[in-house]
């Protein structure tokens, strides 16, 4: 009877909370103002570490924080990963896993505590050709039907030490750019070098030397771009010049920097804009002139008769 009462109380409480939640959503449907709730569990920071040639031999500290209510024991191991076509990290099998130095003894992290785990990137590490070492922290399960373990990783993105950073930028204009004031400017940025980098950039529209429009592209193209990968951008620009003075040649200029490298690449494309209003006015003018000419000719003929 006690159990049933407790169960009923729980159900009642749940139904009251459910009603309250829906009521809140109805009154505040346009703006979500839920407080951010930290996910409970094991936190590993950072999830990725970028390694340049000068970083070989250095020690890095990875922090493992136990946000659960009981102590957790971890074992560290070395794994290998690569990035797939969907830009997701894939774990791969590799026999010669020997790029990282770390202590392989299990370690325990008490609830609410943070454990600093030290990893050294070996001096002997060579370019990895798109395959990167990772340190995996495995939390073990127990012996039963389905023994379940969890594992969380930090990836060491070892830069390719050979070759150069290089950017190839393409610009495409929408087909209506000749007569329409609205122009769609799109394109892609291709990493045609051998190093990964973060592309940043801007796009400008100029008429002669005058900059009519400038917009940052960084938020569209940000993130690491690896060799042979490309990233798209697209903006729409409206030419608000007076149609009768807007006729002329325009230049679209895209400037991309492969951060942290200094090989900024600028791509330009030119187009001639003939406003539809101007075309209409010219055709109208021609029609009027032809009409006048026709009228004069007719009048002359009439007089001759």
């Amino acid at each position: 009877m006690k159990k049933i009462t407790t169960l009923l109380l729980v159900l009642l409480t749940l139904s009251i909370f459910t009603t309250n939640i829906y009521a809140q959503e109805e009154t505040d449907a346009t703006e979500s103002t839920e407080e951010i709730i930290a996910t409970s569990g094991i936190t590993v920071s950072p999830p990725t570490i970028e390694i340049s040639q000068g970083d070989l031999g250095k020690k890095y500290t990875i922090e493992i924080t136990n946000n659960t209510e009981s102590a957790v024991t971890f074992t560290a191991s070395e794994e290998y990963v690569q990035r797939n076509d969907q830009k997701q990290t894939e774990i791969i099998e590799r026999e010669d896993s020997n790029m990282l130095d770390f202590i392989e003894e299990p370690f325990s992290v008490a609830p609410g505590e943070t454990y600093p785990f030290t990893v050294r990137v070996k001096l002997s590490v060579a370019s990895t050709d798109g395959i990167y070492p990772a340190i995996a922290f495995t939390e073990s399960g127990d012996e039963s039907d389905l023994n379940i373990s969890s594992q969380i990783m930090t990836v060491f993105l070892v830069q390719n030490f050979d070759g150069e950073a290089s950017v190839d930028t393409n610009i495409e204009l929408g087909s209506s750019m000749v007569t329409s004031s609205k122009v769609t400017i799109s394109g892609d940025i291709l990493n045609d070098g051998s190093k990964y980098y973060r592309p940043t950039g801007t796009i400008k529209v100029l008429k002669g030397e005058t900059v009519l429009y400038e917009k940052q592209l960084t938020t569209q193209i940000e993130g690491l771009l690896f060799p042979n990968e490309s990233v798209d951008y697209e903006i729409e620009w409206e030419n608000d010049e007076n149609p009768f003075t807007a006729f002329g040649t325009y230049t679209v200029e895209v400037s991309i920097s492969p951060t942290p490298f200094s090989a900024t690449q600028i791509a330009r494309i030119q187009y001639i804009y003939i406003p539809i209003e101007l075309i209409g006015a010219v055709i109208g003018g021609i029609v009027v002139l032809v009409g006048i000419g026709f009228g004069i000719t007719k009048l002359k003929k009439k007089k001759q008769k």
Binding site: P47, T48, V81, R83, K87, Q88, T89, I91, A134, A136, T138, L146, N147, I148, S149, S150, Q151, I152, M153, T154, V155, L157, L224
Partner: peptide
């Protein structure tokens, strides 16, 4: 069974 969490890059 092992569940593995890994960050994309």
């Amino acid at each position: 069974i092992t569940f593995i969490a890994i960050g994309n890059f």
